[in-house]
Simulated assay, not measured.
Amino acid sequence: MSKCWGQERTSRRLARGNGAQPTLSEQTPKQSEHRPGIRVKTARRQREMRFLAIRRIVSRERGKTLSPQKPFTGNDGRVYALGGMGSDAAPQALVRVYDPARDHWQPLPPMPTPQYAASAFLKGNKIYVLGGRQGKLPVTAFEALDLETKSWTKYPSIPSRRAFANCAMTEKCFYSLGGLQQPGPHNFYSRPHFVNTVEVFDIEQGNWTKQSRSTRMREKRADFSVGHIGGRVIAAGGLGNQPVPLGSVEGFNPTKRKWESLPAMNTPRCSCASLQIDNMLFVIGGVAQGPSNAVEALCDRESI
């Protein structure tokens, strides 16, 4: 398998290794030199304050208007928008569909669990919604909207409560990855901490399994981008225990049952928008030292 990162508006490519190894295309855009100044007393407190500071930058950039969940296009060409955050910062349960032929938004049955920042996937005639947040609290709900019957179904909740986690979908499974683990009665930690957790929902069996240590992600990360290309689940960038956003990328090899390193992003960042088209995963914008305008794509060349 050959994978590469492509930077928009550049044709310059740097080869690494032989033809079977990933290659990298890069053009680093100018980044803001600004870095929030935060006084800290401990390494742990520094990581927490850094995480909150970067999130404040993201919130300021997005503004305080109604912020719907990331919309996506269905097989019928319609655009679906689910949940989101209202102008009062309250989580929303609204579900709407846009018909481009009629230039009209139509309401659909609201979600059973109001939330924002969740992961949504279209599979068959159902939209699956996993995780998300309600204020500072992570949501573990796993629900699906049947587009034919216009009804919601609840599935077993995500096993662990993690903020800024992310989810991916394959042909047979849903993956809930990483995040910021919240303190709880059974947790050793008294503060939120980054994790490399991997939890898998088997669609046929209808249950969640928590993976062994050998199948956890290589890096502890939160607020990162995910995708599924070339038969592998991809985790890119995000925030971890380092003093700056991550640029590392890893993919889960289902044959070897382990995560493997992939070419790093040219611009390390978190809080990115992502878009998957065929076997290309686009990572758009986000936060590096400040707001970033980088647009990069990880592609599986064998599928192009």
Rank of each mutant, 00 (worst) to 15 (best):
K3W: 00
G6A: 12
E8I: 01
R9Q: 09
R12Q: 08
R13C: 00
R16G: 07
R16N: 09
G17T: 07
G17S: 09
G19C: 12
P22W: 03
P22I: 03
S25T: 05
V40P: 12
R47V: 10
I54E: 01
R55E: 03
R56Q: 14
I57L: 06
R60L: 12
K64N: 06
Q69E: 10
F72R: 14
F72E: 09
A81I: 12
G84F: 08
G84D: 13
S87L: 15
Q92P: 03
A93N: 05
D99W: 09
R102E: 08
Q106D: 09
P109E: 11
P110R: 00
M111R: 09
T113V: 04
T113W: 00
Y116R: 03
Y116E: 06
G124P: 01
V129M: 12
L130R: 04
R133M: 14
G135E: 11
K136P: 13
L137P: 14
D146P: 08
T149S: 12
S151M: 14
S151A: 03
K154T: 01
K154W: 04
S157L: 06
R162A: 01
A165S: 11
N166C: 07
C167K: 09
C167N: 07
T170L: 04
Y175K: 05
Y175L: 05
G178A: 14
G179C: 05
Q181A: 10
P183R: 15
G184S: 07
G184V: 10
P185R: 05
N187F: 15
F188E: 02
Y189C: 15
R191E: 15
F201W: 10
D202E: 11
T209F: 03
Q211V: 05
R213G: 05
A222N: 13
D223N: 09
D223L: 05
G227M: 12
I234K: 06
I234C: 06
I234E: 01
I234Y: 04
A236W: 01
A236K: 07
G238Y: 03
L239C: 13
P243Y: 14
P245M: 08
P245H: 13
G247P: 13
V249H: 15
N253G: 10
K256Y: 02
R257H: 06
W259N: 11
W259M: 04
S261N: 02
L262I: 14
L262R: 11
A264P: 07
M265K: 12
R269V: 03
A273P: 08
A273W: 08
D278A: 02
M280K: 05
V283I: 13
G285C: 03
G286I: 02
A288T: 01
A288F: 05
Q289L: 00
P291L: 04
A297H: 09
A297V: 04
R301H: 05
E302L: 01
I304T: 07
